[in-house]
Design a binder for these strands. Sequence first.
DNA 1: GCAGTTCATGGAACCGTTTCCATAGAGTTT
DNA 2: AAACTCTATGGAAACGGTTCCATGAACTGC
Lengths: 334, 334
Amino acid sequence: MRTPTIRDVAKHAGVGVGTVSRVLNGSDQVREDTRKRVLEAINALGFSPNSAARQLSGGKTFTIGVVSPFFTFPSFVERLAGIQDVLDGTDYDLTLYSIRSTAQLRRRLGALMLQNRVDGLFILALPISEDETFSANPALPIVVVDDTVHVRRYPHLLIDNVRGGQMATEYLLQHGHTRLGFLGDRVDESFGFTSAQDRFKGFQNTLEAAGLPVNMNWCQFCLHGEDYARDAARDILIQPDRPTAIFAAIDTLAFGVLDAASDLGLRVPEDLAVIGFDDIQAAGFAKLTTVRQHLFQSGQRSAELMLDWLRTGHVPSENWSTVMPLEIVERSTV
Amino acid sequence: MRTPTIRDVAKHAGVGVGTVSRVLNGSDQVREDTRKRVLEAINALGFSPNSAARQLSGGKTFTIGVVSPFFTFPSFVERLAGIQDVLDGTDYDLTLYSIRSTAQLRRRLGALMLQNRVDGLFILALPISEDETFSANPALPIVVVDDTVHVRRYPHLLIDNVRGGQMATEYLLQHGHTRLGFLGDRVDESFGFTSAQDRFKGFQNTLEAAGLPVNMNWCQFCLHGEDYARDAARDILIQPDRPTAIFAAIDTLAFGVLDAASDLGLRVPEDLAVIGFDDIQAAGFAKLTTVRQHLFQSGQRSAELMLDWLRTGHVPSENWSTVMPLEIVERSTV
DNA sequence: GCAGTTCATGGAACCGTTTCCATAGAGTTT
DNA sequence: AAACTCTATGGAAACGGTTCCATGAACTGC
C-alpha cells in the first residue's frame, strides 16, 4: 500500500487538505473537535508528512551543513559535538560535508550555495577567502568557526593563535626553561592552514621579548601523523645541545614528542618539558600539559549563533566576532 | 532575482523542459548540439537543480542517515570516518542523528522510517530489537554495525566480543600473569550495551578453561569517563593482594587504569600489565597494548554494503553477516 | 514513393506539501 | 432584519523537478 498523503488524511477525517496542514503546523485557526478528528485520522493511517514535499513547498530544508576538513582530527570532532549538542533539541538535521582539498571546498560551497540543500552552513577550520563563491547566494546563513583567514563577511568564532603561542611559551619560561623548541604541522598545501604559523609567531615574539634567541635547529614543521611527529621530535632531541622544553602546536604532535622522548630515554618533565595545544580528550589521558581552547563550547556557541540567525531571519549583530578564551591546563608534562 | 528553474533554462536554450532534464541526468537521448546549447544556458543562468524538487519528483533523497549514540566516543568517530570515507565519492550526503536514550532511539527510528528523509540508515552500536518499529517501512535499507542484540533482519557487521575478551585474557596468561583483574563499563541503562558483559564472559571462560579462579574483588564495572575508571581501578589496586594484570574492556577505561597505576606508583608493565580493547587513536599515543577491532574498516565495509543495496535495489545477499576480525596490538603496557 | 522504424524532442501530468483566497455560517451592531 | 465582522474551512495554485506519451523528422528497406 502507498504511504498515505495529506489528502488521504483529509478524506479520512472528512475535511480539506488545508485543514490537515493547519493541524500539522499548529495553526490556531482550527476548531478543537476538528483538530481532534484530524489527529485521529493521522494516527489511524500512520501518516507522516513527506519531508521533500514540505521542503519544496515551504522553501526550508531543516538541514544545516557542516563543511569541515577530514573530520577525524579530534579538534574537529569535539567542535562538531558541541554543534550537535545544541542542534539536537531543534528540528534541524546536521549533514556532514567532509573536504579534502581547496578545489573540493570550492566545488562544495558552490553547490551548497545554489542547490538549496541546507538552510545554513558551518564552516569549520577552513581558510575561506572573500571571493565570488559566496555571492552566489548572499542570503545563506553561514557561521565560520576558527577560520584562519579572517572573514568579516560572516559571524565567526576565532582562536587567537598568536596569543596561544605566547601563553604556552610564557608558561615554559615561567618554569625556568630558556632552551625552547617548537614543533608545528607543516602548512598543508591543499588547505593553507596557518594556525601553526601563528602559534609559532607567538612563540617567537615571546622569546624575543624575553631577550632569548630562537634556535631554528630546535624548530620543526612536520606532516600530520604521530610517526612524522615522532621523527621530527627525534631530530630535535638527538642534537648534543638539545632544548629542555618543546612547545607542540597541536596536541597530537605533542604525543609524538612524548614518544620520541621515551624512545630516547628522556624523562618527562625532568629531562624534557612538553606543552601542547588544543586540549583534546586524549590529552587528559596522557596527562599532557596544554593550552585549552574550549572546542566543545566553541561548537555550541556557533550553533547558537546559527539558530539565532535562522529564527530571526537576519544576521545576529551581537557576538559577530568572538575570540574564544584560551587557558593553560596544568598536568604533568611541564 | 529569483533563482533560475529548469523552465528558465529551457526557454533560454529554446528547448523543452524534458530536454533540459535529460541533459541534467545524462540521458543519451539528446543530440550533441542540443546538449551543448542546454549546457550553455545552464551556465549563463547559473542554474543548479533544486534538491527538494528532485527528491519529491524522483522519490530519492540522496541522503543516508547515521543513527548513533552520543558520538564523541572515539570508537564511533572512527567508524563514522570509515563510512564517510566511502560515501565521499558518491552523490550521497551523510546526516547525523545523535541518540541519547532508548526512548529517543525509538522516536527517531519511527520518524525516519516514515518521513522519507533518508534513502538508507546506518545504525551504529545501538541495541535494537526486532519490534514493530521496522515494519513501518520494511523497504528502507538499513545496515547495522556492532549491534549487541543480533538482528538478523538486516545485514550487519558484528564484533565478537566474547572472542575478543578471550584473546585479551589468553594474551595476559601467555605473558605469565595468573592474577587477572577486569574493568568494564557498567550497563548503561538507557541503551543496554552488552559489549562489556560479553568481553567479561570471554575473560571468565578463558580463566576457567585455564583452571584459574575469577576473583570478583578484582573485577569492576564503572560508568564511562576517565575519572570513574581511575577510581574503580584504584579500588582494585589498593587491595593487599592485587592483580598483576588488568583487562580493560574499552581503551578509554584502560587510560583510567594507567592513571591509577601511576598515582599509586606502580610501574607499567613491570608491576602491572594493562590491556585494552578497541585500538582507538589515543591508544597509539599512550602505547597501550590492546585488542584492535578495525573500526575504520568496519565503517567502510558497512558503507559498501549500503551502496550495494541502494545501487541494486535489493538486499545484498553476500556478506549478510560479517564478523570483523580482531587482533592483538602489542605495545608497551604488557 | 510508401510503410515501417528509430530518434530527438516538447510538454502535460505528477510528486505531496503550504499558502492564499473565497465562502459559509455564526455572531454583532445598527 | 439588514449590514457587517469574524472565524473556520475547502480547495486551487504553486513549489521545481522527472517521466511518460505523443509527435514529427529522418532514415530504412522494398
